[in-house]
């Protein structure tokens, strides 16, 4: 045996299997990142998440200031408080990032997502789908004799709930935009 008394077959002597004792409670945060609207900027942000093993639950991006060439990326991510702090710090040091805001901690915020759901069915199931859509204030944006396409906006969990109800009624396909979010108030 080696002087380290390491058992045969053990892998615990790797330097990389050790994590410091930070809190391990996972939190969900929505981050708003203002970036230069230039080629490759999204790849930089996504590359940071994949390269360092962070989670992305949802990501939206679009230009918000044409004259200033700025885009806003909204990222919903999960992680321990230490990981969330790291994500913000790592985003902040990307040269094309102007600003990082944590909408989960900086005050009350509103989150909205748009989704389109295609539901196919006939008879009673079709009527039921329409009835539930009305309750959820979803609009019918396309209709055939055998299908509807619903458009719904709301917080992500509202869309989840709607999709769950549509599933037994013939949900065929769903497209979601991902979360857009703003802080409340001025």
């Amino acid at each position: 045996m080696s002087p380290l008394h390491i058992q045969k077959g053990s892998t615990s002597h790797s330097a990389y299997n050790l994590r410091p004792s930070f809190s391990d409670i996972e939190e969900r945060h929505t981050l708003a990142v203002l970036v230069d609207n230039e080629a490759g900027v999204l790849a930089r942000v996504i590359g940071l998440f994949s390269g360092r093993g962070y989670n992305i639950e949802s990501l939206t991006v679009a230009e918000v200031d044409h004259t200033g060439h700025l885009s806003r990326i909204t990222i919903v991510t999960t992680g321990t408080p230490q990981v969330i702090a790291q994500i913000k710090a790592q985003l902040g040091r990307i040269v094309s990032v102007h600003d990082v805001h944590d909408l989960t901690t900086e005050g009350a915020s509103v989150e909205r997502e748009l989704a389109m759901l295609k539901v196919a069915g006939e008879g009673e199931r079709r009527v039921e789908a329409l009835r539930i859509a009305e309750i959820f204030r979803a609009n019918v944006v396309d209709s055939t004799l055998g299908s509807f396409v619903f458009e719904i906006t709301g917080a992500p969990d509202k869309i989840d709930a709607f999709a769950d109800l549509m599933r037994p009624l013939g949900l065929v396909e769903i497209a979601r935009t991902g979360v857009a979010a703003l802080l409340r108030g001025t």
Binding site: R19, P20, S21, Q82, A85, Q90, R93
Partner: peptide
């Protein structure tokens, strides 16, 4: 081993890169 690193000290960290702070050691 980072969970046994300098267990009884107050740690101050001066760094120009905010992401270096609290990355490994609190």
């Amino acid at each position: 081993r980072s969970d046994a690193f300098s267990p009884n000290s107050i740690k101050a960290h001066v760094d120009i890169d905010p992401s270096s702070i609290n990355k490994v050691i609190k």
